[in-house]
Amino acid sequence: MQRICVIGGSRYFGKLLVQNLLAAGHHVTVINRGSTPPPPGVEHLVADRDDETALTTALGSRTFDVVVDQVCYTPVQAAIAARAFRDRTARYVMTSTIEVYDPATAALPAVPHGTPVPEGIVDPATWLVRTDLPWHDAAYLEAHYAEGKRQAEAVFTRDAGFAFASVRSAHVLGGGVREFTGRLAHYIERIGHGTEIAVHAGVLPTVFIHYEELADLLLWATTATDFTGPVNACSDELLDVHALAGVIAAQTGREPLYRTVAAGEPASPFSFDRHYAMSNARAKELGFSFSRTTDWLPGAVTEALTAPVTPATPATPAT
């Protein structure tokens, strides 16, 4: 049994992670602002992670074997957590995102066309940190989500007094009420109603992961291995927007209709005109086995077709 603290963990794959940790026999503590209580058997600490005094007060004299941070979005939040947990844990795991590799948000090293990028393309040990930027402003943070994650990883990598690992998640999907980003629902609704889907002329593939598989990988990263540094989390098999829509079409019996947008114009989620896929080779080398996207995607579509969804803006990050 390990003593594990989860910051966040109140929805989607974070909620499932908490349940899985508890089922595996670990002592689990959840920290959030109190709006969502954890399941029975989980210790609940109420604190705003942005308030360093409140966070350290809530922690008291507690120590943990591992901390899993589900809701760190800025270098300022990372710096607060690094100080708060410096003498309280030996290991810290942060949920990060594929968006750190988006070439539209940063000048990144070039890779051969069509090559899924490895973790080293974004090295947190050398990434510039700017805590003086307006990270407290919600609009700024939304517009700079990827950069906030990159800089948060950098703070933990360079300034923390514990072993640090980040899990860079692919685009997360899962049907029904769990698919809270609304992205899968966007396609199901448009295909079902015969509404055009806006796509780029030369769409490129990306990578996905089911929310259950991501929860499994986070459990593995927390309890079954001691790797440090970033690791990419994505199911095997790349899909472009046409392949994704094709799976939905097979489930609904309706063919998708497309409208091609000009370069630079917005398109539907998962329509990418830039290389935006990552390699899961490191996670496999460390011992994690992934499913194939097309093994679980039809079931996720079926679940979304038969259960209500919680809609959200398609740009809402899935991690």
Rank of each mutant, 00 (worst) to 15 (best):
R150K: 12
R150A: 06
W135Y: 06
H186N: 02
F164V: 08
F164Q: 03
P134T: 11
W135A: 06
V172Y: 05
H113I: 15
D137T: 07
G182E: 07
E119T: 11
I98A: 01
A139G: 05
A138P: 02
D137H: 02
Q151M: 15
L128A: 11
A160W: 02
V177Y: 08
G174I: 09
G176C: 00
G175Y: 08
G161N: 09
P134E: 09
E99M: 13
P116K: 09
P103D: 12
G161Q: 11
V129I: 15
H171R: 09
H171A: 14
E99I: 08
E179T: 05
L173V: 14
R168M: 14
T181K: 03
A163C: 05
G120C: 07
H144R: 01
P116W: 05
A146E: 05
Y187P: 06
G175T: 09
E142L: 12
R168C: 15
V117H: 06
A165S: 15
A125I: 02
V129L: 11
F180T: 13
G174E: 14
P118E: 11
F180A: 12
A143D: 09
G114T: 08
A165N: 10
T181W: 00
V167C: 03
H144D: 03
V129M: 09
A143Q: 14
Y101V: 07
Y187I: 03
A138E: 12
D159Q: 12
P116M: 05
D102N: 15
D137P: 03
E179L: 07
V111L: 15
A152W: 08
F164R: 05
E153T: 13
V111T: 14
I121P: 02
A143R: 10
L184H: 03
A152D: 06
A152H: 11
A106L: 02
T115V: 06
A143E: 13
R158M: 02
V117Y: 10
T126M: 09
D159T: 08
L184A: 08
V172M: 03
Y140K: 13
E99L: 12
A138R: 13
D123Q: 06
R150M: 12
R178Y: 04
S166R: 01
P134I: 11
V177E: 10
H136K: 11
F162Y: 15
Q151F: 14
V111M: 15
V100L: 10
G176Q: 03
G176D: 00
E147C: 11
P116S: 04
D102K: 07
T131L: 13
A170L: 00
P112G: 05
S166L: 03
V167G: 00
A165M: 13
L128M: 12
Y101Q: 14
V111F: 15
D137G: 05
G175W: 07
T115C: 01
D159Y: 07
L108V: 04
H171P: 04
P103I: 06
D132N: 14
G174S: 15
R158F: 06
F156A: 04
P109V: 03
